[in-house]
């Protein structure tokens, strides 16, 4: 069983997302979210893989005559960053509904909190508070719900982020490798000979 570093986790899941067809910016968020979860000892690879495999779809936001924004239902890979964008744009509390998997959203919110130093509160399918990338309480999940409400406010400067690791299942890690390998260009003799700008041997 492999226990990848956080950097390996972020890169592998980013590339897996790219390989599955998600845009670069979304893939990068997914990679960081997976690593943030892994740093806490959670299965970030599994959460990211589930999100990556969801079909894409349009995301829209609307207000129903009040201050609350509503997003979704939409896949977490798109609805997650969109909800966090609205939140950090100062547009007020956001209610987001995911089509299926939502565990990755904890990672997306955790990473966003780490980057901004904000305290983010999630309430619904996942209930937790995160400040400057640190959990303030144990996350509570409600398996009957696919939605949650997000609020945020500036937080206190945080200590360095955790550097733990999580060993994903060998199948999930291999699955991610297969997806990420879709971003690689098949090898040819000409590419091997000329693509790197150096010869094949160095006998001097």
């Amino acid at each position: 069983m492999i226990t990848p570093s956080l950097n390996e986790t972020a890169r592998r899941m980013r590339d897996a997302a790219r390989g599955a067809g998600w845009p670069d910016g979304i893939a990068t968020e997914i990679g960081h979210a997976a690593a943030w979860l892994a740093a806490l000892g959670a299965d970030g690879v599994g959460a990211a893989l589930a999100a990556i495999k969801e079909p894409s779809g349009p995301v829209d936001a609307r207000q129903n005559g009040d201050a609350l924004w509503h997003i979704g239902p939409a896949p977490v890979a798109l609805a997650g960053p969109a909800a966090l964008d609205l939140l950090f744009a100062g547009e007020g509390p956001v209610h987001v509904t995911f089509t299926d998997h939502r565990t990755l959203f904890l990672g997306l919110a955790g990473w966003a909190s780490a980057q901004t130093g904000y305290r983010i509160r999630l309430e619904g399918a996942i209930t937790v508070q995160i400040e400057a990338g640190h959990l303030l309480n144990a996350p509570h999940t409600d398996p009957t719900r696919r939605d949650l409400v997000l609020t945020a406010r500036p937080g206190l400067p945080g200590a360095p982020l955790p550097c733990g690791r999580h060993a994903p299942s060998p199948e999930a890690w291999e699955d991610a490798l297969q997806l990420s390998s879709r971003t690689l260009v098949p090898a040819t003799a000409a590419s091997r000979a000329f693509g790197a700008g150096a010869g094949l041997g160095d006998g001097d």
Binding site: V185, R192, G195, G197
Partner: peptide, 26 residues
């Protein structure tokens, strides 16, 4: 620019005559 499946070696190709541009590194 691309990454080859050959040990993930970074390489450079000529778009008009080499395959793989659809997988280029951005």
């Amino acid at each position: 620019w691309y990454v080859s499946e050959d040990k993930s070696e970074p390489r450079l190709g000529v778009r008009s005559r080499e395959p793989g541009a659809e997988l280029e590194t951005r």
